[in-house]
Amino acid sequence: MTRTLTPPAPVSLKDFDAMFESVKNWGRWGPDDERGTLNYLTPDRIAAAATLVKSGRTVSMAIPINKVAGPDNPNPAVHLMSLMHDIPITDNGLSFGMCYLAMASHGDCHTHVDALNHVAYKGKLYNGKPAELLTSRGSEWGAITAYANGIVGRGVLLDAARHRKVDWLEPGEAVTRAELEAIEEEQGVRLGEGDILVFRTGHHARRLALGAWNNEPGGEGKAGLHVDTVPWMHERKIAAFLPDGDGETVPSNVEAMPYPIHPLQLVAMGMCISDSLNLEDVAKACEEEGRWEFMVVGLPLRLPGATGTPWNPVAIF
């Protein structure tokens, strides 16, 4: 039986710009704020998230670091053994194994978290800061170090693939605001102020089953959100967004805008967003635990000036 796919309805650039203005958080937390929506994650909300820990089960939401080049991984990680146990460092036989890792801070095969200096729109970063703040040396403002104390809070998985009763959404399919609300109702959860939205399309399941594909513009594409979900996130005061894929529907449905979700979230809202998660294990854990909420602990690397960093966010049940 042929599936009926759900490509997103088209959006004009004029409507996109109006939406951008409507969800702006510039100045909400002061002119120099560089934490954005993480300001919703107050100590009280973090403490409340800890009460969700019942079984003590922990689940990584990261893809294993990918060292193999492919159509969705043009910049594979470089991992070298720099010292092996065949060279003892003392006469009594003591030895150390050591290695070296070099990798991109972004990409479709690297689970990473974006900094607020990562995306600009019309020459501006979040909070109206000039894009020129980011130079070849990085930038002090809006760097990933603003998240150095961790991203900890209540995570809620909205599983679009489960809702549609498929293993994964196909490239180019979009999930709307109405569908996110339907998933909430089906799963018996509701996202609110300071929550972390964990969003599954089955992107990683498709890659494991069918192999890698070019999911960028000009390639096969990927499933993601319709832009009408962004005002919903703004209204709900969601603190962070953790999708498989990167949340974007490719090809884009917005006129002349290949990646509309990123500027709306990062530049307008100052939202903390992560890309390229593996949500297959956490989806299974949610089914087995019988709940779709859990504590999230994510620890970005403390890399001065950086536009993002690989990380390993963990769900705790």
Rank of each mutant, 00 (worst) to 15 (best):
D72C: 13
E289H: 14
V297P: 00
A47C: 11
G153H: 09
E140Q: 09
M269S: 06
P74M: 02
T6P: 00
V314D: 00
R164P: 02
V166T: 10
A306M: 05
S252T: 12
E216V: 11
Q265T: 12
R164A: 08
D15T: 12
V175K: 04
L116Q: 06
S60H: 15
V314T: 12
D86H: 01
G305V: 03
G298E: 06
W141N: 01
P313T: 05
R35D: 02
W311K: 07
T6H: 12
S95R: 08
A48I: 13
G188E: 00
L299K: 14
S95I: 01
D159E: 02
V227F: 10
V152L: 11
L134C: 13
G138I: 03
L197A: 10
P171M: 01
Y100D: 09
P304A: 05
T201H: 03
T42M: 05
P260M: 06
R302C: 09
K237F: 03
E280C: 14
H234F: 13
G30W: 05
D17P: 11
V68P: 00
L13D: 09
W292E: 09
R206W: 07
A49E: 03
P217K: 03
S55H: 01
H226M: 01
P310E: 11
P217N: 01
R164K: 08
R236V: 03
V267C: 08
D244A: 06
G188D: 01
A240E: 01
A49M: 06
C286Y: 07
N278D: 15
E132W: 08
N92H: 13
G290S: 02
D91T: 15
G308K: 02
E140S: 15
R3D: 07
L169D: 03
D72L: 10
A146M: 14
G142I: 02
I151S: 06
G219R: 08
G93N: 05
P8L: 00
A239I: 01
G138H: 10
L225V: 11
W311Q: 07
L157C: 00
A146N: 03
L180H: 06
A62R: 13
A62C: 13
I196D: 02
K24H: 12
R206H: 04
G123H: 07
V296A: 12
L157Y: 06
S82K: 14
H110G: 03
D167A: 13
F294V: 08
L225W: 05
G30D: 10
A315Y: 07
H106V: 15
Y40T: 01
W232A: 08
A131H: 15
H106P: 11
V23H: 11
G224K: 00
I261H: 03
R200C: 08
G192R: 05
K129F: 11
C286W: 02
F317C: 12
N117Q: 01
V23D: 01
S274A: 15
D32R: 11
